[in-house]
Amino acid sequence: MIRLIATGLWICLVTALSTYAATMWESKTTPATEVDQLFGGLRSMQTSTISVPVIDNGGVQGYVLAQFTFTMNSEIVNRMSITPDVFLLDAAFRTIYATDAETLSGSKKQDFQKLTSAIKKRVNERFGHDFVADVLIEKFNFVSKDQTRQGMEQVKARPEF
């Protein structure tokens, strides 16, 4: 009887210690100082998707749907009283809107390095110092006016419930 109780306690103890060890092993994180050294105190922020009209020959030719991720100095972001994503989206919208319509529609090859550099430069000029470290493209699609009309016709053709 004592052996049975001792064996049960032994099994419970081994199970508890192995569960604790597995949990600690899985949740091992890098200390904050190492993360700061790796990324230099950068913080990333993903914007919502924006829709920018592409205007050429006096009319809308289509829309660019874009989503970006910005890496910024975390110290500055923490001190801001307003979220910086509104400024980031504004700079992205203005830069894409000013881009040549042929380039955006796919007639010419898009230079994404030039686009992201222009967005970064515009945001940093607005804030007066190097606020944005890098601009990354999450999504970038061109949808022609004809494609949007076809999509709307399909939506109208569906019966409502």
Rank of each mutant, 00 (worst) to 15 (best):
Phe127Lys: 01
Phe127Val: 02
Leu89Pro: 08
Gly106Asn: 03
Thr95Trp: 04
Phe140Ala: 03
Ser105Leu: 01
Phe127Tyr: 08
Gly106Ala: 11
Lys121Leu: 12
Glu125Ser: 14
Ala98Cys: 04
Asp134Lys: 05
Ala98His: 10
Ala98Ser: 10
Ser81Gly: 14
Val123Gly: 06
Arg122Thr: 13
Asn124Phe: 08
Lys120Ser: 10
Thr95Lys: 10
Ala92His: 00
Ile82Leu: 05
Ala91Gly: 09
Lys120Tyr: 02
Leu136Glu: 15
Pro84Val: 04
Glu125Pro: 05
Ile76Lys: 03
Lys114Gly: 15
Lys114Cys: 11
Gln110Ser: 10
Arg122Val: 14
Leu115Asp: 01
Lys108Ile: 08
Ala98Gln: 09
Phe127Cys: 01
Ile96Ala: 01
Arg126Gly: 15
Asn124Glu: 13
Asp90Cys: 10
Ala98Glu: 15
Phe142Ala: 05
His129Pro: 05
Gly106Met: 05
Asn141Thr: 06
Phe93Met: 11
Lys139Ala: 13
Ile119Glu: 06
Pro84Tyr: 13
Leu136Pro: 06
Gly106Tyr: 01
Leu104Pro: 11
Lys109Ile: 03
Asp134Ile: 10
Phe127Ala: 00
Arg94Lys: 08
Glu138Ile: 06
Ile82Lys: 14
Leu89Glu: 14
Phe93Asp: 12
Phe112Asn: 00
Leu104Ala: 03
Thr103Leu: 06
Lys109Asp: 07
Phe131Asn: 03
Thr99Asn: 00
Glu102Val: 13
Tyr97Asp: 14
Asp111Tyr: 12
Arg94Pro: 03
Ile119Lys: 06
Ala118Pro: 12
Ser81Cys: 04
Asp111Gly: 04
Leu136Val: 14
Glu102Ile: 07
Ile137Thr: 12
Thr103Pro: 04
Val123Ile: 07
Lys139Glu: 10
Lys108Tyr: 13
Leu88Gly: 02
Thr83Lys: 07
His129Ala: 08
Arg122Lys: 09
Asp100Asn: 12
Thr83Tyr: 13
Arg94Glu: 06
Glu102Lys: 11
Phe127His: 03
Ala92Ser: 08
Asp90Ser: 14
Glu125Cys: 06
Ile96Tyr: 01
Glu138Asn: 07
Leu115Asn: 02
Thr83Gly: 13
Lys139Pro: 06
Glu138Trp: 00
Leu104Phe: 12
Val86Trp: 08
Asp85Pro: 01
Ala91Lys: 05
Lys120Glu: 10
His129Ser: 13
Thr116Ile: 09
Phe127Ser: 00
Ser81Glu: 08
Leu136Asp: 15
Val86Gly: 05
Leu104His: 02
Ser105Pro: 03
Lys139Asn: 07
Glu125Asn: 15
Asp90Ala: 11
Asp111Ser: 01
Asn78Ala: 15
Gln110Asp: 15
Phe93Val: 13
Arg126Pro: 15
Phe112Leu: 04
Asp130Trp: 10
Ser81Ile: 03
Asn78Ile: 14
Leu104Glu: 08
Ile119Gln: 08
Ala133Trp: 01
Thr95Asp: 04
Asp134Met: 13
Ser105His: 03
Arg126Leu: 13
Ser144Ala: 03
Leu89Phe: 10
Ala92Ile: 05
Asp100Ala: 09
Leu104Thr: 15
Thr95Met: 11
Ala91Ser: 07
Ala91Thr: 06
Glu102Asn: 14
Asp85Ala: 13
Lys120Val: 12
Lys145Ile: 12
Arg79Pro: 08
Val143Leu: 02
